[in-house]
Design a protein around this nucleic acid. Sequence first.
DNA 1: CCTTTATGATTCATTTATAAACCATTATGA
DNA 2: TCATAATGGTTTATAAATGAATCATAAAGG
Lengths: 112, 112
Amino acid sequence: MPKPVSRAYSHYSRDALLAFSQLIKRARIERKLTMQELADRAGISRGLLQRIEKGDPACAIGVVFEVAAIVGVRLFNADQATLATAISANNATLALLPKSVRPSSKQVKDDF
Amino acid sequence: MPKPVSRAYSHYSRDALLAFSQLIKRARIERKLTMQELADRAGISRGLLQRIEKGDPACAIGVVFEVAAIVGVRLFNADQATLATAISANNATLALLPKSVRPSSKQVKDDF
DNA sequence: CCTTTATGATTCATTTATAAACCATTATGA
DNA sequence: TCATAATGGTTTATAAATGAATCATAAAGG
C-alpha cells in the first residue's frame, strides 16, 4: 500500500530537531569547518549535510548523530562513559520490565 | 553515483542512539503501550517501531523524535519553552557568526 | 495450564532518501 | 574592490527505507 505523502510532526519534536540542527551548524562554524570538509569526514554528501543543518526530519538518524559527534555536539549532555553506564542500567531495567504489554483498557497517558 | 553500501559510525554516536532507543522502549512499556498502539499514534508501521526501539541508524530522525515525544522522552532534558528559547538564542548567535567558512590551513579539531 | 495476543523476524512492492553534477548567489579575505 | 570559493538550490539516477502481509515464538493473564 502507498505510504503517506507527508508526515505530521508534533510541535515539540520539530523544535527539538531544529534546535539540534542549529547546534550542529554552530559547532561546525565555530570549528571553522567547511560544509564540504565536514561532509567528507562524515562520509556523506554536501547536500545531505545541508538538509541536516536545516533540520530536515527525513534524514537518517544515524548520520545526524554521527555528524553531531564529529563537531562535538553531545546528546543528553553525556560523554562516552556516561552513555555506556546508561545503556547497562537500561538493559537491567528492561530485563525487569514485562516482555510484552497487554493493554488493559486502552488507557491513555498523554501528558506533554 | 553509487552510495556507500554500508556506513561507518563512531562508537559514541552508536551508543547515543542505542541509549536513546532504550529510553523509548522503556517509556512505552512503563506507559503500558503496545508496539502496535504506539505505532498507530505515531502514524508509522509496527515494523518501523521495532527498528526504532532497536536503535537502527537508518530510521528517519523526525519519526524517531516524534515517537520519543509521544512517550515522553525529552531531548536535552528540555521542555517546550526551553527549546523555543534555545532556538531563538541559537538564531541570534548564528546571525553573528560568519555565513561561510574559509579553511585557513586545514586545521583539525577532533577531541572526542 | 491453555488460550490469546504481543513481539520478532522475513519478504516484497513502492516510495523516498541520497549522491553527484550542475548553476547561481553571496560572502570572505586579500 | 575583486577574485576565489563556500553556500544554496536544482535535477536525475540509484540505492535504501518504509509499509504491508505473513509466519513463528513467547509471554501474559485468566
